[in-house]
Amino acid sequence: MKVLVAVKRVIDYNVKVRVKPDNTGVDLANVKMAMNPFCEIAVEEAVRLKEKGVASEIVVVSIGPKACQEQIRTALALGADRGIHIETDEEVQSLEAAKLLKAVVEKEEPKLVILGKQSIDSDNNQTGQMLAALTGMGQGTFASEVVVDGEKVNVTREVDGGLMTVALNLPAVVTTDLRLNEPRYASLPNIMKAKKKPLDAMSPADLGVEIAPRLSTLKVEAPASRQAGIKVADVAELVDKLKNEAKVI
């Protein structure tokens, strides 16, 4: 079966985020960018399904500026077979991303679509669910285990208070949580090979989707910083402070 994986280019998770002095956003100039960590887990899961003989082809798609092709090439080096780049310099919000991905789903007809549960920049946690709703598919969000069984997929989900397993008819959408797998690193030979794998570029207009954001960001500020308190000498002083000064016990 064919698996479609969506990946997003975001600020590298090790980079310290700085808000721009004019409060219009976060400073991304000359900042290291990388594949969103949850998307790496999505790619890894697809590659493992292929290694198990469950998936036959992995198509990776990314939306954004030209530079997104770096992340598509990374996914190809990790084991995806071909790439689709939906190129736009506009800000693409979750609902539009879902509409663009829906158009790709209609063209490619994958049995399974795997996405990260959220991107570490906008932290929305929406696109996979919106795609599932728009395409009339079931969804297994925040997955910690994915087992394909005939025309169904069983997804174990990380939910408040524990785990929950659902069975979904295929095709279905899965979004990844942290413990689903540990992504591998791409080997140098695979990075070289990935350069020759096919990568199609298209525009949102080619897919018949108009980019029209519904949300506008009025300002972005740094969070209020918390002041460091005091160091206590020992446990007795700590308990005394908690009881008599902070009055929280």
Binding site: V17, D123, L215, A222
Partner: peptide, 14 residues
């Protein structure tokens, strides 16, 4: 909050 709480955004919905 966005960026894992490292920035706080004010957003208007249309």
């Amino acid at each position: 909050p966005i960026y894992a709480g490292n920035a706080i955004a004010t957003v208007k919905a249309s």
